[in-house]
Design a protein around this nucleic acid. Sequence first.
DNA 1: CCCTGATTCGC
DNA 2: GCGAATCAGG
Length: 183
Amino acid sequence: MSWTNERVELLKKLWTEGHSASQIAAELGGVTRNAVIGKVHRLGLSGRAKTAAPVAKTRRPRAAAPAASSGQPAATARPASAGQPRVSGATALKADASPAPMARPAVEPMAELVPISERATILTLNERTCKWPVGDPSSEDFYFCGRHSDPGVPYCAHHCKVAYQPVSDRRRNERKVANARAS
DNA sequence: CCCTGATTCGC
DNA sequence: GCGAATCAGG
């Protein structure tokens, strides 16, 4: 992917609005946060909310070069959910948020007790945060569980149990479920 | 550990 | 110019 005018403009906009480099990278898609930061610097629009620059920091010589030129870069930022509309709640969330947990069997009483500090918004979710929706998507109080989940597993340990319970009879699904519980 | 931005430098 | 690797800090 290259830095087209449009992408640069979007970058400027989001950066100015205070989005983090990783969030911007996610919205742009096809770039890592490093790429975003690098571009930001080249554009000369760094130092967003900084006071005085300390300057001078004795950089290290930097180890030997990777030398891994061609082929797959480093498999980083994969736009798993790129191009999120970044809307406020309802609409966007309802559309593609997470696989709405339909029938939810009585698992454990304790469930929706997520510390506010760990709650996630559509922009905070990543490969290792629980994407279990909590509350009414059309409500302002809506949020995603956000607790830790193993990379690749959509939910935290608890919500995995809830989500995959109905089919626990089949040994087929042991892949996901088992892995999810292992941890 | 997760994350943030800053910097260097091979490409 | 680009961005991975690295650093420094929360």
